[in-house]
Simulated scan of single mutants.
Amino acid sequence: MNVGFIGVGSMGAAMVPNLLKAGHRVSVWNRNAEAARALPGVTVLDTPAQAFQNDAVITMLADDAAVRSVIIESGALASARDGCVHVMAATISLALVDELADLHRKAGIAYVAAPVFGVPAAAAKAQLNIVAAGDAAAIARVQPLFDAIGQKTWQLGTDPKQANVAKIAGNMMIALAIEAMGEATALTESYGLTAAEFLPIVTNSIFASPSYQRYGGFIAAGSYEPGFKLTLGLKDVSLAFAAAEATKTTLPAAAIVRENMLSAIDQGLGAKDWSVLAKMARRRGGLGDDVA
């Protein structure tokens, strides 16, 4: 399959080699062309519109503003080839999902929402979990791409918002897990039981899951280098609040996490991995500072 790929940050750059390995022909557009040229085996494109001349396009951009600029304001949809399927892998707001779905309908282009769960290391091993929603026939056409980059595709119906709300809610849960570990280790350390002693117990027993193990490891080591930057984590938690506001749903625990994220960013920690929330729990507990 001929595949256009828009956005090769750390996630995109980890996904593209697996598409190539599966035999797909990949052309890439990226704001920073050097990052695109660094990927062996791809064709580097001059404009995002050129990506839409392929059988399918995968978009992996940072946020709503980037998607709006690159996909909507660039006019890329207007020149898309007939039969092109656009796969939106970015984590974006539900309001933008609706807008994109409408624009794609008007342009006659199939739109599939397919955000992914997993970090770049998992992407490099083709171990992503993909949550997909959209036209069933369109999903079937791009399923070989999902098979190349992920370990499982979770199909969630025809409304693209279902995939995006699943991703937003899942990322919110990771933020809550990090806060839980931060507060728990603040408690244990106040009694002399270190995070390095405590967290391996719970992350290999009652909370034996990849997210707890990954971020618990960072917390136990007191090392918070990205990773997934705290500023991006705040973006995702803010998406959860925007989605909740539309349905008048309350998120009281997430509200606490958001305040702690904002406080951490105010203290200059926005570029750290979002597990740095544990640092804030230590500070609130009067346990000092373990981050350079």
Rank of each mutant, 00 (worst) to 15 (best):
V119N: 10
K235I: 07
F218S: 14
K272Q: 14
V165C: 09
D82R: 15
L20W: 10
A49I: 06
A255L: 06
E179V: 12
N204P: 10
L19R: 11
M172V: 14
L61T: 07
K167G: 08
E99R: 13
G134V: 07
M280E: 15
K272T: 12
V97Y: 03
L251E: 04
G192D: 06
S238H: 07
D289K: 02
G83C: 10
D159Y: 02
R141A: 14
A78W: 00
L232S: 08
S263W: 11
V28W: 06
P17R: 10
G170Y: 03
T249R: 07
R284G: 12
S93D: 01
R258D: 02
S238I: 05
A66V: 14
N164A: 09
I265W: 01
K152H: 13
G118P: 00
A137E: 13
L176Y: 09
R282T: 10
L96P: 01
N30S: 12
A123C: 06
D290W: 09
D55I: 08
K106N: 11
A90Y: 00
Y224L: 11
E34N: 12
G134H: 03
G150D: 01
L269V: 10
I139E: 04
G9M: 05
A184H: 03
E183C: 03
L128W: 04
T43G: 08
G23V: 13
I72L: 15
L61M: 10
M280T: 15
A95D: 15
S205C: 13
G222D: 13
A126Q: 07
G285N: 06
L103V: 11
E259F: 00
A13M: 09
G182K: 03
A243R: 06
G227K: 10
A254C: 06
R81Y: 09
